[in-house]
Amino acid sequence: MTASPALAFITADEVTELVDPGTARELLRQTLLDGFDPAGDPARSHLHNAAGELLLMPSALNDWVGVKLAGVAPENPRLGLPRIQAVYVLFDGATLSPRLMIDGAALTSLRTPATSAVAAAELADPDPAKLLVFGSGPQAVGHVVALTTLFPRLSVSIVARRAEGVAAAIGKLDALGIEATAGSADEVPEADLIVTATSSSEPVFDGSGVRDGACVLAIGSHSPARRELDSTLMGRSLVVVEDLGTARRECGDVVIAAGEGRLSLGTLPNLSDLVCGRISRATDRPNVFKGSGMAWQDLAVAAGIAERYTGND
């Protein structure tokens, strides 16, 4: 019996070396242009324990199959550990032989902002000037990197509950050559782009202040009982979701607004509609993209990593 070769492990540093934010964005965009239907993705599975929950996210795409296993432990930061830790296992689609293991946290930090950037490329002003980010963790930083790659002229403000969190995020961005300053929710009316990347269960700003034509990217929650955006904003906006079934299961911003009679779920377009030109951005109202993260996004970027890793061997 032939022994299986040892699996290579792609570290966080290697993830960023092999696929940059612009490439990740194009991998996701091309997957949708090629006709992939996110509605066929399996639902995320949740296994709860005393520390938090383990998420299992499998998908199949072209020549690849993969699964992400992510642990979400809210008390971990008090122990000096990340709130989210993960590993990704990539399989050959033809044989289901495991091919690579990838740092799942780094993969998530790359693919989530890249997905938002796919939406922002269609929903934002063609040349936006101001980006306001709520949150100071890895996703907040990752979104600044992805969006300033797409829109180099952006000025960046960071808003978070803790001043030390804002300072840390600004320091990380400075090390990457990106200038950012501390901001406040008072800047919402001035913003062309707004990102919410928080762990909040309640709206983080007053949605009535978002200007018509602005783009809001909400990615901080994947629970039907938690939201970052209020029903006022959801009700007056063009709202785009990753997939309607996923939004019904996991997106509190959508579910709660619908429950309050401010949003009709049956009319919500998805990201594929946007990328393939079946809908376009609104200029007479705000534009909202609500994402909770889907397994196909991990797989599309993981496959890109694998193809580049093999080519470098």
Rank of each mutant, 00 (worst) to 15 (best):
residue 64 W to Y: 15
residue 107 L to C: 07
residue 110 L to S: 03
residue 73 A to N: 12
residue 40 G to K: 09
residue 110 L to D: 06
residue 84 I to W: 00
residue 68 K to N: 13
residue 127 D to I: 11
residue 91 F to W: 08
residue 101 M to R: 12
residue 106 A to F: 04
residue 58 P to G: 01
residue 134 F to D: 09
residue 88 Y to M: 04
residue 91 F to H: 15
residue 82 P to D: 02
residue 56 L to F: 13
residue 96 L to H: 10
residue 44 R to H: 04
residue 132 L to V: 05
residue 53 E to W: 05
residue 77 P to D: 07
residue 38 P to H: 01
residue 105 A to R: 14
residue 95 T to F: 05
residue 97 S to M: 07
residue 108 T to C: 06
residue 61 L to H: 13
residue 122 E to C: 13
residue 137 G to T: 09
residue 104 G to A: 09
residue 128 P to M: 13
residue 109 S to M: 06
residue 86 A to N: 08
residue 100 L to M: 12
residue 61 L to W: 15
residue 118 V to M: 07
residue 128 P to V: 15
residue 76 N to C: 05
residue 69 L to S: 14
residue 80 G to M: 01
residue 91 F to G: 07
residue 121 A to C: 09
residue 110 L to F: 06
residue 79 L to K: 13
residue 104 G to V: 08
residue 118 V to F: 05
residue 72 V to R: 10
residue 38 P to G: 03
residue 109 S to Q: 14
residue 72 V to H: 08
residue 90 L to V: 04
residue 105 A to T: 15
residue 81 L to K: 13
residue 134 F to A: 10
residue 61 L to R: 10
residue 111 R to H: 10
residue 112 T to M: 11
residue 83 R to T: 15
residue 45 S to K: 12
residue 106 A to P: 11
residue 67 V to D: 05
residue 64 W to T: 06
residue 49 N to W: 14
residue 80 G to Y: 02
residue 125 D to G: 00
residue 63 D to Y: 00
residue 40 G to D: 14
residue 110 L to N: 06
